[in-house]
Amino acid sequence: MTKRIVKVYPRFERLWHWTQALLIAVLMFTGLRVSGVHAFIPFGPAVMLHTLAALTLLVVWIFATFWLFTTGTWRQFLPKVEGMLATARYYAYGIFKGEEPPYQKQYWRKHNPLQAATYFGLKWVVFPAIWVTGILYLTYNFWDSGADSAFVLAVVRNIHLLAAYVIFAFVIAHIYLLTTGHGFRDHVRPMVTGYEEIDLTPEQEAYFEANTPDRLKPLEPAE
């Protein structure tokens, strides 16, 4: 394996990431207002902004899902048992002792086993839960059919809130982990420029040099 600086995040993936981050921030802020946690903005505008941000994010996710499956990038999010315990131990203990991470990022496997499992759970359980309940809540007037509807609406609301708080916890953990290891700036830079230092097999390196040399950059000299 050879370390090279490779463009691992194409423009669409970076645009999708930052658009999603902005919209989720808006949804968290307005959602907390709708739930009565704060009163920084009026209730009515908060509901309207929350709804517009949610629908926009839904469109973004539709395009992102299409891109993931047409490019084969969806395979990056398949969890693997191998290395799971070592990665969990690193985040629970080793990272505080200055140990080297047990998983090195590769071009065809950007996420470590714990990250892949987390994203898999979010994309296949939490996100569908928040979308289905959000749409049900938004269309309540169309399916309201009597006394039982109030109970169903309460269940829908609670599932929606639970999923939202799981996403909120993920965002907090995600931001915290960006401050570990090499530091916040080094973790964020690849999602801005698209380039990151990763390990390449000789076959991968030869392929990039022959077919897409623009995706390779020379290693920066050590300070």
Rank of each mutant, 00 (worst) to 15 (best):
V166L: 14
F69C: 04
A25H: 05
V192G: 01
W131F: 15
P45H: 05
A163L: 08
E100D: 12
W131P: 02
L200C: 09
F120K: 01
W18Y: 06
F170A: 14
I5L: 07
V188L: 13
G121M: 07
T73L: 05
K7E: 15
A25S: 14
Y93S: 14
V166R: 02
V34N: 11
Q76I: 03
A163V: 02
F29A: 13
W16S: 02
Q104A: 09
L200G: 11
G134R: 07
V37N: 03
A164M: 10
V59D: 06
R11H: 03
P128L: 04
V192K: 02
V6T: 11
V126R: 02
G72Y: 05
P213C: 11
L52M: 10
W61S: 01
L23Q: 11
I159P: 00
S35N: 04
F127Q: 01
D148L: 11
E100T: 13
T71D: 14
L178F: 02
I24A: 08
I198W: 07
Y137V: 01
R109G: 00
A86H: 11
F208H: 04
I24V: 13
E100A: 12
T71F: 00
P218L: 04
F96I: 10
A210N: 03
A25Y: 00
L114T: 07
L27W: 01
H38L: 06
F96G: 13
K3N: 08
F120A: 06
K217M: 12
A116S: 08
Y165S: 13
T139F: 15
G121D: 01
L49R: 02
Y119D: 10
N112R: 00
G83C: 07
V59P: 02
A86Y: 09
Y119T: 14
G94M: 09
G181E: 00
Q106A: 12
A21M: 12
F168R: 00
P10G: 09
V59Y: 04
R11D: 01
G44D: 15
H174P: 09
K105G: 02
V166Y: 00
V152Y: 10
A173C: 04
E223T: 05
A129I: 08
V125M: 14
